[in-house]
Design a protein around this nucleic acid. Sequence first.
DNA 1: TTGTACGCGTTATCAA
DNA 2: TTGATAACGCGTACAA
Lengths: 344, 344
Amino acid sequence: MATISDVAARAGVSIATVSRVLSGQPCTTPATRDKVLRSVAELNYHLNRSASNLRRNQTGVILILTPNMTNPYYASILTGIGDTATALGSAAFICNTRDDPNRSTAALERLRQHQADGAILLSIDADATWLADYASDFPLVQCSEFQPDSTITHVAIDNKAASHDVMAHLLELGHTRIAHLSADNTYPSTRDRLAGYQEALAQANIDPCPEYVVRGSADYSFASGKDATHTLLALPKPPTAIFCISDTLAMGAVVAAREAGFNIPADISITGFDDVAVNEMIQPQLTTLAQPCYELGVTSARALFALINHETTPLAHVLDHHLVVRQSSAKAPAGASEHSGGAR
Amino acid sequence: MATISDVAARAGVSIATVSRVLSGQPCTTPATRDKVLRSVAELNYHLNRSASNLRRNQTGVILILTPNMTNPYYASILTGIGDTATALGSAAFICNTRDDPNRSTAALERLRQHQADGAILLSIDADATWLADYASDFPLVQCSEFQPDSTITHVAIDNKAASHDVMAHLLELGHTRIAHLSADNTYPSTRDRLAGYQEALAQANIDPCPEYVVRGSADYSFASGKDATHTLLALPKPPTAIFCISDTLAMGAVVAAREAGFNIPADISITGFDDVAVNEMIQPQLTTLAQPCYELGVTSARALFALINHETTPLAHVLDHHLVVRQSSAKAPAGASEHSGGAR
DNA sequence: TTGTACGCGTTATCAA
DNA sequence: TTGATAACGCGTACAA
């Protein structure tokens, strides 16, 4: 563990010179430069970041808080963040909080402790006002999830508009008995998607049916999507379309529908949300609302570095979504609807 | 950003006393203790870890290097590591290296730079001898993948024995035309599973058929599993069983087999490897070799902390695997084999 | 262009 | 039980 003074001694210069050479300042003679670099190599010198960080009061590290590692939706975002941070010369360290507020706050406290320059949050599992206080002291970006009135820089799609797009597609296909497979969490995205669904129904003059809104588990598990769909299909008047707020839920819905003897999309249409890679594994190919996951990550990272460098960046970054129509959605079965009188 | 001397001044004590109180040393009067804790609260003081780490020469951080975030197999391991580190009062920071040696080495260099106390590697993407040098200087644990002659502490299952177990199952079902769907990487696990397959064939006196060994992509992608299976099934004498070295590949194989008009398991048996959660999403349920993923993570973390604390820990930790027989494997179709003369 | 010397915030040793 | 003070390794203002 050679230190900078070891290097200086061996090269016959002062530590100031070594520091200047290593930080790439131009004011050094090629000769001294060489001497320094040679003794760095000979002594196998490496910077002590604790000392450097202490002196400079910054770390070159950003923290990413993710509620879990299993959701492929997060995987793309994380990759986008990591690539961007790497390109910008920082390290992106991912903390798996497991949706545990204690672990989230402990991770964020590391900003106060000078162990990171900023953080990106992929979920809201900390108290909102606490978080706001926090963001006023430190660079913070929220990705995907944020409170409607948030004063924290955030990056996401317009979930309500996206929900309208899904509904427009299903309505255009003649569906009127449309169910909404939501999730048992309080994420703003969940709320917005439900709101978009309800608004679209109202605009189409379709009476909302309370039984048509069901919820899978908080983490959108496949199994819970299957269960919820079975309840839906056991109704006296089952829906002819199910709008799922995640692809995993939709995959559960597909399996459940098959088990219940429904053909997809002839008897029932099913749509997903996110467009994650696992979709390819299922038949029929899923119609879904695609989020630009990787770009969400890239944009979040760029925004965070802007904050860190005291550059200006918008409070809200809204990225474009788009509907990907594949095989799991089709015209409503004839005679299924009491409103459209037999769509064809 | 109050410092320890601010706290000391406000409490009317020395910084040494503050430090002692905060590090929980018993040699302090309850009265001074209270004074100190009160001014800590009033000033909203937080430890500066850069300074602390510099002085103590350790960080309370471990680094996890993962080649990607999308593979659910890694997700469980990462969760096991994270839970264990949290329980032991350390932070587990995950670095996504994307299988890029530059990113891997950059991450590991942080050990030299005193920014972490140790590291767990989930893949081998750094030069082996470089890694060995490294491990002699720093606490290092390899999880899942390690060189056969490795001198680095490692945690994994016995892949060759596991391979034998899969083969025993298929042989017992009367299969003799058994294909091996491998992956286009040089991971030791990949090599060991192939070796087990070949040994088992030899022990059963079955002539190996070179066309029966095919490879999917390096990262076991679903699509590559599908493609490889199509080639397999287009052979003049297609196999009656496919032993896939990952569940994702197996899921691709299932879809391909169906597309080619094969019934599973009546016409062809397909087995996976790992037993990751996404398996539940596919019909028929996959027969697979289950790895104790979460425990692999826990064990790796424990081993690493043992190294960090200079306790002894075995060089090799071998965890138990087991075959989970579900619906995708069954007796070889009658008359399919030229060896068994019509298994039933 | 280079060197001296101080300070970053802690922890730990020693003496009181 | 407490306080003064030296170190940890580095960056930089200032002087040369």
